[in-house]
Design a protein around this nucleic acid. Sequence first.
DNA 1: AAATCGGGGAC
DNA 2: GTCCCAGATTT
Length: 360
Amino acid sequence: MQKTRKKYFRDQLMAWFAQNHRPLPWKGEKAPYLVWLSEVILQQTRVEQGLPYFERFRQRYPTVQQLAEAPEDEVMKLWEGLGYYSRARNLHAAARHIARKLGGRFPDTYEGIRQLKGVGSYTAAAIASFAFGLPYAVVDGNVFRVLSRFFGMETPIDTTAGKKAFAELAQELLDPAQPGPYNQAIMDFGATQCTPKSPGCSSCPLHSDCTAYREKKVEALPVKSKKAQKRERFFHYLVVRHQGKALLNKRTEKDIWQNLYEFPLLELPRFSRHEADVRNSELWRQLFDGQEAVIHRISRPYQQQLTHQKILASFWEVGLPAEAVLNSGPFLAIDQKKLGEFAFPRVINRYLNEAQLTLF
DNA sequence: AAATCGGGGAC
DNA sequence: GTCCCAGATTT
């Protein structure tokens, strides 16, 4: 590849950036903690979706020390609804590591930053360049798209070889004199000009030398080799309320929604609305053990799409005679009024919002 | 190398 | 419905 083409790409990109950058709260931010916070929130997350969460976290935890001191349930509650909850767990763990083991000093080298839980090559490069001005090129979804198109690279981006090739090219293109602005530029360009669907090629200042544009392959790039498979799961939640209390379970297994809360869950191989399927379960026996429990209502089915799973959930509202003694077993019996303090998956919050008027 | 981890918005 | 987003971690 000729040097001139790379120089052309870099120069045109920076010229575009001078006219088009999006003003965002973390732009030009130099405090490593806030750069880190914004980057973790934005992993696999659109700017518009992450922005309110960034403001919330920045307000609640202005410093890494304050984040480190927060209870984990509180951090999870603040993250509620954003998805990929391991990000919140890792963010919190890393904050405690910085506060306790690093004396509150944020690491200031790429390798040091990369060691933090939840920080991979992208996030380490972003923090290194934005907060410390270090010459590391970011490679995110935008960069894959922009480079694959402009340079006509058909290597699948979801392979080891593909990731390596794009990372090397990105690093060669980086302007070492201004790594931060360059990284901002290529991501802004990908997000607003060189978009996945119907990109603005006609008004693009780089189209005259863009391989994909010349060969009419823009919509076909980047190439991905794998496609996600989905499995269906059928959740039957027992909404048990008794004497002002409700039962909750904390999800601790290696599964979706780790460290979020839910009602006692009966997962079945298929979706059921038959009382017998629920009454004959081990969970039912464990909870009520021969007592006269009444199923007051079965909610409508609630569906939730995840990347690799489709969840179908129903909520079985169960009551006991006033004098009955509830055997909570491994579950938490919490005040119904405090339900709002716990972090739930979206599918449960959707149910709670609809049932709220009649139930809680 | 492949699988898995959410939720939402654009189409 | 499909795609994909300022990706990382586990197996």
